[in-house]
Design a binder for these strands. Structure first.
Lengths: 133, 133
DNA sequence: TGACTTATTGCAATTTATTTGCAATAATAA
DNA sequence: TTATTATTGCAAATAAATTGCAATAAGTCA
């Protein structure tokens, strides 16, 4: 939290109560804007949805959060200070789990096969979680 | 094309000129609804955007097309009768290339590591293409 | 071929997701 | 404590996707 606060202030930006709230609401699990909005407004607080959008865009610029696009149209956000990982999305209950995978070999193959300078990648799995099977 | 026509008719659905047009417009490269809409309307034809949406949804149900969600919010569609592949997306010019990768080992690790019954996955790479480097 | 049935289309209007403009507010520095 | 200005909330605009419904046309059968 303090690292993030410093990061924000070093950019000449302000560490507002709204930003703090959103940071608290963000779990590892990627959440939609609406979910984050509901989470912060479930307490005594009230925050406009526009503010949620703006803060998340700002956090994205600063590298504090990652944007995760799953199969639905709503974007999702998660804190970026976790280890690099991928997602397992349950098509029944919508639950999302993180998973870490060895992917060095795969990335090497891509580098060999293509002229692209790869900067990032996303790897998402869709299926049915244990609970829904 | 005939396989697809049969698939449609076997479901008691009609093989309309609009569906034919959209099939022609679909390349391997995943396109947005707007791109497909423009492609079909560039000729003498005129087709409503709603129709494009509806036909693509229908094709998705029948498994004729795949939905591809990249980092932007607009969904993309591509014919599903190609070999399974992944995408290289240039962040500069927006160009999208297909790439085929050996992924058996990766999928095996996922199965070993998780309780999920994996049904599909998406693997997208973002970077800079040769031309833009 | 022509008439009939009904899936499909086009158009207008909605809904949903996201963005923008601007005055009021509040975080920080002096 | 005051001044500066980044940020917020609200209303309105834009963009993406969906829905209702009457008109159209694909396929069927006489």
């Amino acid at each position: 939290m303090d690292t993030i606060k410093k990061l924000i202030k070093d950019k000449g930006q302000r560490f507002t109560s709204q930003k703090k709230e959103i940071l608290c609401a963000l779990q590892q699990k990627p959440q939609t804007v609406l979910e984050i909005y509901k989470a912060v407004n479930s307490k005594k607080n009230s925050m406009d949805k526009t503010t949620v959008y703006r803060i998340l865009t700002n956090f994205l610029d600063l590298g504090i959060v990652n944007k995760v696009q799953l199969n639905d149209k709503e974007a999702r956000f998660e804190l970026s200070n976790r280890k690099h990982h991928h997602h397992l999305v349950c098509e029944d209950c919508g639950n999302i789990e993180n998973i870490q995978l060895p992917e060095d070999t795969l990335l090497k193959v891509v580098k060999k096969k293509s002229d692209f300078k790869i900067k990032s990648h996303s790897l998402e799995f869709f299926g049915v979680c244990k609970h829904c099977q």
